[in-house]
Write a protein that binds this DNA or RNA. Structure first.
Lengths: 143, 143
DNA sequence: GTAAATTAGTTGAATATTCAACCAATAAGC
DNA sequence: GCTTATTGGTTGAATATTCAACTAATTTAC
C-alpha cells in the first residue's frame, strides 16, 4: 500500500503567501512606511516602467480590474501616484508616480529585496528553478 | 555580465494563488455549490477530522483567528457546520459537521481533487517535490 | 483562594478581492 | 455616418484578511 502524504501545492501556496503578506506588512510598519504588501507590488511595477494603464497592471498581476481601481485609490490617497487620462485614448488612465512616489523607491526596494532574498536563502538554485518552473506552468494553465 | 530575469517567487505565488481561487470559485458555481475556495479549505480539514477548535484551524492554515471566525460564520449560515462549546474547556468551540456538511464531501472532494491534480499534471515528480520543499521551507521560516 | 496572566473567540475598522452592473470612449460592421 | 460591439474604468455587494480592543474562561503565581 502506497501512502501519499504530500501536502497539496495549492495549500502550501496559500500558507506561504499569507505568511509573506503578514511579514511584509509588519516589516513596513516597523520602518514607518504606510504601505501594504499589495501596494508595494503595484509600485514595483511602476518603478520599473511608469505610466502603465490600470488594465495592464491587472493583466500583469492576474487580478480583476476592480481590484486595481481600489489599490490605485489607496495609493492616490497617500499621494504616491496620479491618474492621468490618456490623450490618445481617453478610456485609458495612465498611472504616474508623484515625487513622493518616486522617492519611496529608495526606501522600499532595498528593504523588500533584502527580506525576499533572505526568505529563500535556504533553498538550492536547482530547487528554486524547479519551483519557478512549476508555478509558471500553473499560471499559464490557469490563465 | 549576468542577467537575472527570474520572477520573484513571492510574485509567482501571488499570481498562482489568485488564479487558483478564481478557477475554483468558478468551478463551484458551475456545479451549483454555494461555497468559496476558502470555505472548502476549512471543510477539507474538518472532513479529515471533525471537532477541531477554531484556533487549531487558524494554526493549520496559518491564518488569524479572526479570519476563521468569519469563515465559520459563513459555513454556519449555510448550515454545514455548528459550533459546539467544549465541555472540558468552555473557551474552546469545537466545529462539527452537520448532515449537510458531511454530505457535501462526496460532491466537493472528487471535484476539487480532479481539478487540483489536473493543474499540476504538466510538472515532473521531481519538480513537484522541489516545489514542496521550497514552499515548506518558506513556511517554516516565516512562521 | 484570590489576583494576574494567558488563551479562545468575537467585533469593527481598514484593506484586498471578485463579480456584475454600470458609464464613457473607441472601434467595427453595415 | 449610425448602430453595435468592445474596451477601460468605477461602483456596490459579498467574502476574505489582519489588527487591536474586547469579553469570557482557565491557568499560574503568590
Amino acid at each position: 500500500m502506497t501512502m501519499n502524504n504530500s501536502p497539496r501545492v495549492s495549500l502550501l501556496l496559500s500558507q506561504a503567501l499569507g505568511l509573506y503578506r503578514l511579514r511584509i506588512n509588519a516589516l513596513l510598519i516597523q520602518h514607518n512606511i504606510d504601505l501594504t504588501s499589495e501596494m508595494c507590488t503595484v509600485l514595483r511595477i511602476l518603478w520599473k516602467k511608469e505610466g502603465r494603464k490600470q488594465q495592464e497592471l491587472a493583466d500583469i498581476l492576474c487580478k480583476d480590474k476592480g481590484s486595481i481601481t481600489k489599490i490605485i485609490d489607496n495609493l492616490e490617497k497617500r499621494e504616491l501616484v496620479e491618474r492621468v487620462t490618456d490623450a490618445e485614448d481617453a478610456r485609458n488612465k495612465n498611472i504616474v508616480l508623484t515625487a513622493q512616489g518616486k522617492a519611496m523607491k529608495k526606501k522600499v526596494v532595498p528593504l523588500l529585496d533584502g527580506f525576499l532574498d533572505s526568505v529563500i536563502d535556504h533553498a538550492s538554485q536547482a530547487d528554486l528553478e524547479a519551483t519557478r518552473r512549476v508555478l509558471t506552468g500553473i499560471i499559464q494553465k490557469l490563465k
